[in-house]
């Protein structure tokens, strides 16, 4: 339902003769609020690491792809009910999510999550930690029993630290790299190893499409283009 107005850019790839499991057009769902993974650029289009990666994957898999924006908190339900065909939104592969949807192989290696705070000597265990709702980070803090404060978008979690709502924010390191160093925000030394790598999410009934994307990711890994892309956007460590 959340096929959002605007912002989705149709992608004219090679004349798509290959129809993947009945998909003449593959709709790619993303959040558009998670720099540098995916965000909306000044022109109002989806941009970022995953935009480039997704376009390249579709080209290699000979698919016609279309981009769709969706709120993070309903991104899985809308995939499951068929409003788009893939999630490509910096989503870590976890056992919990894997029960509901399927993932391709990871396209970034597992990276730790980091904290950003205003005070470098903060003790996170007694602090108020902000995280985006329904992320692995939010689950992690809840599990630890620390004080969790949840926000709907990544941007708001960082804003909460800036204005003192929360003492620190826990998120993917690459995302926090974009804000650390601004407005007195510092990254803590402590890291948390949570989650596997980041993969593309698909419906469990869509095995054929998954195989195509898997093959495309493998080919990008092999010829080094994936590493180059990761380096360009500074999203993670390389394979």
């Amino acid at each position: 339902m959340k096929h959002l107005l605007l912002g989705a850019a149709a992608l004219a790839v090679t004349a798509s003769m290959a129809l993947a499991g009945g998909h003449s057009v593959v709709r790619m769902g993303t959040e558009g609020a998670y720099e540098p993974w995916n965000f909306i650029n000044d022109a109002g289009e989806i941009d970022g690491f995953e935009r480039e990666l997704g376009d390249e994957l579709c080209k290699r898999a000979e698919l016609t792809c279309e981009w769709v924006k969706n709120d993070w908190d309903s991104i899985i339900p809308n995939l499951v009910s068929g409003n788009y065909d893939t999630i490509i939104a910096g989503m870590s592969i976890t056992a919990e999510r894997d029960e509901v949807i399927d993932f391709t192989q990871p396209y970034t290696p597992p990276d730790p999550s980091a904290y950003v705070a205003l005070d470098a000597g903060l003790d996170v265990e007694g602090a108020v930690i902000a995280a985006q709702a329904t992320t692995i980070q939010a689950g992690f803090i809840a599990e630890k029993g620390w004080t969790l404060i949840e926000f709907a978008t990544p941007e708001e979690t960082v804003a909460a630290v800036r204005n003192g709502e929360a003492d620190a924010v826990l998120a993917d390191k690459s995302f926090l790299d974009t804000v650390a160093g601004t407005d007195g925000l510092v990254m803590l030394d402590r890291m948390e190893a949570i989650g596997g790598g980041v993969g593309m999410g698909l419906r469990e009934s869509d095995a054929e499409l998954r195989a195509k994307f898997d093959a495309a990711i493998t080919s990008m890994k092999e010829d080094g283009t994936l590493n180059a892309l990761i380096a360009k956007w500074e999203v993670a460590s390389q394979f």
Binding site: D73, P77, A133, T147, L148, I149, E150, E156, E165
Partner: peptide, 21 residues
């Protein structure tokens, strides 16, 4: 924002909707 997952009825309803799809 919701603190310590202490929210109102709608917060929990959407929590369940989110978990059970």
């Amino acid at each position: 924002p919701t603190l310590k997952q202490q929210g109102d009825a709608l917060y929990y309803a959407s929590y369940f909707a989110d978990k059970t799809f």
